[in-house]
Amino acid sequence: MTDAPILELTDVSAEYGPFRSLFGVSLTIRPGAAVALLGANGAGKTTVARVASGLVSASAGSVTVDGTDMTEARTYEFARAGVAHAPEGRSVFATFTVEENLTLSFRRALGRSRVKAGLEEAYSLFPRLGERRSQTAGTLSGGEQRMLSLSRVLVEKPRLLIADELSLGLAPIVVDEVYETLATIRGTGTALLIVEQHVQHALELCDDVALLDHGTIAWEGPASEAAEVVVTHLFDREGS
C-alpha cells in the first residue's frame, strides 16, 4: 500500500466551541508529496494543520493517516503514526533547556540511542541552538525559539511534516537554510504540508497548492498554475 495517501481529510469540519472555522475541507497528501496551504488571515490554515496532527478533532468528516481512520484518535497517536507538527508561533517548553526540548521529542521519535546524533544534527542545522544548548528555552529570542521548534520536526524526518507559518520570525538567511533542508528531506520520502504567508518560497518548494478561504478549499492545483490564482485570489478579494 505504498500509494495510500499519508493524510486524507474528507469533508472535515472543525470548530472551537461555538466558533466554526472549517466547513467541509477535503485534502489529500500522498507520500513524498509537498503541499502548500495558502490563504488569507483567519482562513483556517492553522486549523487544517491542527486537524491533520490531531490537536483539534474534526466535528464532522473523517481523517485518515496512512490508510487508518484516525478521526477519533488522540494527538499522540498521530505523532506515533508519523505526523510531526511544528505549530505556529513559539511552540517550545519554556522552562526546559534547549537540549531538554529536543531530547523529549527525540527519545520517542528517534529512539534512545539516536538522541545524541539527533541533537548534533539539530545543532549543525542551526548553530545558534548549539551555542545555547543549556539556555532555558523561554529566554531565547523569538526567532531562536522558532528554530528550536522547527529543528525538532526537521531532524525527525517523519512521514508527514507539518510546518505552520514556516518562515515567521526568521531572518531571510535562515529561511533559505530551512527551505534547503526541506528540499533535502523531501528527497528522503517525507511528505510536507507547509503553511506560509510568504508565498514565493512555498511555491518553489511545493508541487501542489491548496487555497483556503473562509474555512473551505477555494482552489486546488499544481504549484505552476498557482501563482496567478493565488495572486488574484489574495489581492483582489474585494474585486472577485
Binding site: 490563504g39 488571515n41 507559518e165 515567521l168 504567508q197 510568504h198 489574495l234 489581492f235
Partner: peptide, 11 residues
C-alpha cells in the same frame, strides 16, 4: 516588533 509576522502580504 515584527508587526507583519502572521499577516499575509496583502495585509
Amino acid at each position: 516588533d515584527e508587526p507583519s509576522s502572521g499577516l499575509d502580504r496583502e495585509e
